[in-house]
Design a protein around this nucleic acid. Structure first.
Lengths: 206, 206
DNA sequence: CTCCATATGTTTACAGTGGTAACTTCGAGG
DNA sequence: CCTCGAAGTTACCACTGTAAACATATGGAG
């Protein structure tokens, strides 16, 4: 592909960008990073990518499709983080779950814009099966950890998905609260996260 | 006020609406009700209120101000629901907390659009102190219940705000999950909510 | 090697949005 | 009664998402 060579010479701005699709995704991601205030215009993405405002439509059906793809990718990298956290803390079930929770929250805090997008009504999972599946897949990491905990007899026997929903809801809630700055140190103590999780963990134990 | 008489005769559409401010709020609220897909245009509100698209600006600084006011009102009615739930189930601390949780979730499910708005990044609490205070005030109901539980010795002694954060996060998380239809019966069991709360309650108990 | 089909980009256009400004109308208080 | 300000209106601006028509570069067929 000579496209690569074209990209190697950014000065002459070849008519064909080379890899606009990737470039648009990257640009959009970086915009999500800086942009806490929720605004996201496709035209601005195009502008920053140095391309006409209609160009993105050659690669994405519409604005929603771009967002959906970014959100899906977000779920995937979050899932990856969850997995390594789980594997590195496999000694006890509690440790694993705590590690997963921390991984999610760290991810959310580090990429607050992206995290918001992932759970925003802006992008509807029904319309993008790939997105929905990415979300479900990340949920699976939690499920697996809980199942193992039950098998080991550390956790109460019971509907795993119910326990998972509780954990997920708690972690997600804490993350958004923290993103919105409502879990400030003076309001809620020093280690609200660990503490809150401990409460739930105690309730889940056998 | 003869304005009232003017409003009583809607046919002749008097040049001055009578009570446009209230009317706009009502219209907007009802739009939030039907509208699950997140779109909310000020012009549409004006249209439905039977008024020109610039009229709202005589009563609200901008779109955000309207939304903020609606969100604040939402927090107030939610708080009211929480309060009556708490008072009607004051026998035991567990019952009170469960009732509060149910009240929040019922409110969220019954007014999903409004609930979304209340926690949306669309309306930033920093910019509207009244909104922020309304949110904090509703949080206070939960705090009070937990404090009472601690005093009664039913709950662990400890930082109340931390426990509150845990409860809040859990309930909020469950509510949004349920609104998004991700807590379906087959996925998560029959009474995911009560169950999940029970887990946390067990962990909070002394 | 030539040439053309096609993927990718650009320009132009349109409807709809939030927001401002200048004009009109109404009703209340001197 | 008359005026003055509040609450409407229309006209306008910059911007958005999206579509259609046009332009260009590139790879593969002849």
């Amino acid at each position: 592909m000579t496209k690569a060579t074209a990209k190697s010479n950014p000065k002459s701005r070849p008519y064909h960008h080379g890899d606009l699709r990737r470039s648009l995704l990257d640009t959009a991601r970086s915009m999500l990073q800086e942009d806490t205030g929720w605004q996201f215009t496709l035209r601005e993405v195009a502008r920053r990518a140095g391309v006409s405002h209609a160009a993105p439509y050659k690669h994405f059906a519409d604005r929603g499709a771009l967002l959906a793809e970014i959100a899906a990718a977000g779920f995937q990298t979050m899932e990856a983080a969850m997995r390594v956290a789980a594997e590195r803390n496999a000694k006890s079930c509690e440790a694993t779950l705590q590690a997963i929770a921390r991984a999610v929250m760290d991810f959310g805090l580090a990429n607050s814009g992206l995290y918001r997008l992932m759970y925003s009504a802006e992008v509807d999972k029904k319309a993008y099966p790939a997105l929905e599946q990415a979300a479900l897949s990340s949920f699976g990491v939690l499920l697996a950890a809980l199942e193992q905990g039950q098998r080991a007899g550390v956790l109460r026997a019971g509907p795993v998905r119910g326990q998972a929903a509780a954990c997920w809801a708690l972690v997600h809630g804490l993350t958004t609260l923290q993103i919105d700055g409502q879990l400030t140190h003076d309001k809620v103590g020093s280690k609200p996260v660990t503490v809150a999780l401990d409460y739930l963990m105690d309730g889940l134990k056998a």
